[in-house]
Write a protein that binds this DNA or RNA. Structure first.
Lengths: 199, 199
DNA sequence: CGTCGATATGGCACAACGTGCCAGATCGGC
DNA sequence: GCCGATCTGGCACGTTGTGCCATATCGACG
């Protein structure tokens, strides 16, 4: 996966960011995002309010690092596929390689709680959709690198479809109580979206 | 389209809401969302700050009524199709009936300016995606009414695909300078998404 | 026409948000 | 051990969004 890629300082920073994210996730799932002050997150994380806003652009954004974990790994895996490969199979393979990995299993429970809370909380839902939008935007150049001579609009649509596949499957997975990883569902959604839904 | 459906009071309310939205759109495209205070919007609209927040949940949300116009008309048209119809053709027909209508032509320039500004403005982009998310959520029961015995996950995916078709086509249309209505592009996107993109 | 209940509006106060600024602390390299 | 760079905390400040109440406007009814 990712070895000793970043500098020590940088890794410490992402570590504290994840720590803050988990604390914020706990408070958000307990009292909702509106019922949680930024100061309480900072206090629970053991940092000052000013420092909290250096790690998070917005109070709600504090949980974003948790939500991006899976997508980041997935895109990194996809970026490693050689140019000229067929896109949809490459996307599926990247899903298998990352969405069921043991790395994110530790954070999947957080994700489930957050997505469930996001169903009733507009602010949390906004973060979830912002994360997906960012993922879709960062996905586009990766797809273009794999298939350099494809039509750009088609690539945009494929990026939207793949992002939707992951999003819808994760939302569906969060709604259920099963322990099964959401990989199979994601692959099924992707195939449905890219091979026709029928009327 | 919509006759004398709502009460007079209600129509006055939506009218002022649109008025505020156009004023806010002008200010946002000129100085950006971050560079516009809620008070300046209220002043330009001739209302007090307190009243402004009665019409708009958030400063950025002030432009939402403009962005929802097309989607609302489209969903209303789609909701009128009889149960048992084939979904994708029904969606296409609703696109033809609404996205090129003269009603929204008046507000399309606003839309273009807003979408262009949203490319560089995270807050505006968040509103745009919130509007699409709402549209997708409200689309689901309509689809379920047309095809009562369809699998729900398939319906969710189709709702996501149709929303993406409109979203991506509008974003693409906003990026170009052509006067052509975005209908044809939307239909093409929908067909690409529902009939397979190829690898 | 006049009265009354309901709704819309404005003004005020207030907690919370997010940022600029500066001072002290902490870390890394020579 | 020293020094520059980065991280952190505290403070002040403008802005956001809301609760509360007083006033004004609107619609219905006698």
């Amino acid at each position: 996966m990712s070895g000793t890629s970043a500098s020590l300082t940088e890794r410490r920073r992402t570590a504290t960011q994840l720590e803050i994210a988990r604390v914020a996730a706990q408070l958000f799932t307990d009292h909702g995002a509106a019922g949680t002050t930024a100061e309480s997150i900072a206090e629970a994380a053991g940092i000052s309010l000013r420092t909290f806003y250096r790690y998070s652009r917005t109070k709600e954004d504090a949980i974003a690092p948790l939500l991006t974990l899976g997508g980041d790994a997935w895109r990194a895996e996809l970026a490693a596929t050689p140019p000229g490969s067929r896109l949809v199979p490459a996307i599926e393979q990247a899903m298998h390689a990352t969405l069921s990995a043991a790395d994110i299993d530790h954070d999947l429970p957080w994700m489930r709680g957050l997505l469930r809370a996001a169903e009733d909380d507009d602010d949390l839902a906004a973060v979830w959709y912002r994360v997906n939008r960012d993922s879709e935007a960062r996905l586009l150049p990766i797809l273009a690198q794999i298939a350099p001579d494809a039509d750009e609009l088609d690539l945009r649509l494929l990026a939207a479809a793949a992002t939707d596949a992951i999003r819808v499957s994760l939302e569906d997975w969060a709604r259920r109580d099963e322990a099964q990883a959401p990989v199979d569902l994601a692959v099924r959604c992707l195939r449905s979206l890219t091979r026709g839904l029928g009327g």
